[in-house]
Amino acid sequence: MKKPHIPVRFVPIGATILVFLLAYAIGIANFRNFGSLRVFLNLLHDNAYLGVASIGAMVVILSGGIDLSVGSVIAFTGMLIAKMIDCGVNACWAILLAIVLGSLFGMLQGVLISTFELPPFLVTLGGMFFARGCSYVVNEQAMGILNNPVFNFIENKLEIPVGSRGLTLEFIDILYLVLLIIAIVFTQRTHAGRCIYAVGENEQAATLMGIPVRRTKIMVYTIAGFCSAVAGIVFTIYLKSGNPLSCVGLEMDAIAATVIGGTLLTGGVGYMIGSFFGVLVLGLIQVLIMFQGNINSWWTRIIVGALVLVFIFMQNLITKISKKSKG
């Protein structure tokens, strides 16, 4: 049997990397300093929270589900931490509690979805409203985090110098990259990770092959909840405040990043590293428009929208081609 040199399944991820390089090349060609390390580090820094959220979104989408509660959980996490610090609780405990609550929240959604076979779209839509409401219950106004020793420590001490000009990779960037590597190993090289692909690809077949479908789904939403909470922490460190209004619709950005990263929305196909490039592409478009200076920044959204469509179109085409070669 003859086979192509590049398997079809690598095409979407290849396209993502290509788009990323293309966007970068456009930037370097048009703007001075675009290629500098500083721009890249800023890109990473500004999008770390979205990156962490995208890891969760990607895992859920791989399993064939969807999580709409991401943005709300981020807002709630931020509010919770800010409020607890305001009440005099040690920030470490606040952060720990936020992670536990976020994971539990995700797990609860997972149980509803897998045990009662409720549609994930609706369960997490409910979760979205619930978490958003909760963040207003914590406090109706945004709350700043000022002069907190833990936050100061994270900001000033936990960083790795990069290059010679005093540039640093900060804590949240490192956190994102570490989580990303763990996620890549997890999805590619562990039994539980491969089960996610199996469930996303064909639930019935997975059941017949003896894969614990229910447990896998609960795990997936727990991971998503965990990632949302961590994204919330990253966002809080990034802005040093909590705001009940923040990150409205962020789940859509996370989904867009996942799709642009080459993951099939129907589940079962995709690479975690793709979500990394997806996030960077989203960020790059924004930076490009910023550098341009005289374009309305909302054009970012229009370009992202177009990109998502193009990628979905391409995936559809690839699915059809691979089906044809099967027959």
Binding site: Y197, A198, V269
Partner: peptide
């Protein structure tokens, strides 16, 4: 065929 077409042949034999 109740297997997972997008995974590799090796994984389809061994998954689980």
């Amino acid at each position: 065929v109740n297997l997972l077409p997008d995974l590799s042949v090796a994984e389809n034999v061994c998954i689980g």
